[in-house]
Amino acid sequence: MTTNTTTAPTQAARRMDPAKPKRRSGRSSYPYWFYLPAALIYTVLFLVPTFASFFFSFTRWNLTDFTWIGMDNFVQFFSEEALLKGLTNTFIYGVVTSALKVVIGMLLAVLLTSQIIARGYLRSIIFFPVLLSSIGVGIVFTVLMDPSTGLINKALAVVGIDGPAWLTDPAWALMSVAFVDVWKGVGLATVIYIAGIVSIPSEYFEAAKMDGASPVKSFFNITLPLARPATATVIILSLIGGLRSFDLIWAMTKGGPGFTSDVIASVIFKQYQAGFYGLSTAGNVVLFLIVTAVIVPLSMFLNRKEVEA
């Protein structure tokens, strides 16, 4: 009787002990099925084309056959006369468009988060160009930038300024396309900055105002540092888009006049048009490696700075 009385409470305590959860008979694999659609799409749309591009960059190929030629495509690609100019233009274009989107996007975001009339309407207007087709924007601005009949030069002539040949002058062609790129894409940068600014607690601005800080000091001491994540996002997205830019440049200048506005993507497309499929594939691999080599260290640097801050 004594033994039974002692063991019964002990067994009940063990059953009710929360520190000892029930052992599961087996791990259910059901949740892992949710990964399958995304993994399948990622494999088909990214991994397979990426590995296929790397493979075919070492071949001379067409739609029916291929021949392994090793590094010949890369040697020929880097011996192209237009490549050095295209490589230089790619970095110039990417840096200029990224820098302008960061600066203008930040200033517009500060304006559009202030107490101004029709703030919501102005936000819509600034974001609207992002929704437009790059080819359509390129065609429209090609007409507007015509040196003799374009509205831009006519407007400049009214105030006594002789406008340049925006798209046919080698000194202006690349920068003209870059300015159009900024006009089209700055709305996205502005929206990202608006999201970053409105997430800053209002107490900081109220305290700065009570301390007598001017709006300029509040911007440099509060807005700019605390909007660092938004700045990192805008820099990365803008630089990726700038280094990979093709459609707007092709719609407006086709890399001309001469090679003065060629970028790596347009050089690759010209090789593809000429039937050098293996060579153009090698160019795509080079572009992929260049973008990766620039973006990955930059992203790590910006994220490290953000964590330290």
Results as ranks from 00 to 15, higher is better:
Gly138Pro: 07
Ile192Val: 13
Ile139Ser: 11
Ala155Glu: 04
Leu151Lys: 11
Asn153Arg: 07
Val186Leu: 09
Ile125Asn: 01
Val137Cys: 07
Gly150Arg: 11
Ile152Gly: 04
Thr142Trp: 07
Gly120Asp: 15
Val191Leu: 15
Ile197Asp: 08
Val182Gly: 00
Phe128Gln: 06
Leu167Asp: 10
Gly163Glu: 05
Ile200Tyr: 09
Ser148Phe: 15
Ser124Thr: 14
Val158Gln: 09
Gly163Ile: 03
Thr142Asp: 15
Asp146Cys: 00
Ala189Pro: 04
Val140Tyr: 09
Leu167Ile: 15
Trp172Ala: 11
Thr168Cys: 01
Asp181Leu: 04
Ile125Trp: 02
Leu144Gln: 10
Val198Ala: 05
Ala189Met: 03
Leu122Glu: 00
Gly150Met: 11
Tyr193Asn: 01
Met175Asp: 14
Val191His: 04
Leu131Thr: 10
Ala165His: 15
Asp181Lys: 10
Gly150Cys: 06
Ser133Pro: 13
Ala165Pro: 07
Tyr121Lys: 08
Leu167Gln: 05
Leu174Cys: 04
Trp172Val: 12
Gly136Asp: 03
Ala178Ile: 01
Gly196Glu: 07
Ile152Cys: 05
Ser202Asp: 14
Ile197Asn: 05
Ala178Pro: 00
Val159Tyr: 00
Ser148Arg: 13
Gly120Thr: 13
Ile192Cys: 03
Val186Pro: 00
Ile135Cys: 01
Ile126Lys: 01
Leu122Asn: 09
Tyr193Ala: 01
Ile192Thr: 11
Val191Phe: 08
Val198Pro: 02
Thr149Gly: 02
Phe141Lys: 00
Glu203Trp: 04
Asp181Glu: 15
Ser202Glu: 12
Ser199Phe: 00
Asp146Ile: 07
Val191Pro: 03
Thr190Gly: 05
Val186Met: 10
Asp162Asn: 13
Ile139Val: 14
Gly150Asp: 11
Val137His: 10
Ala173Arg: 04
Ile139Pro: 00
Val198Ser: 11
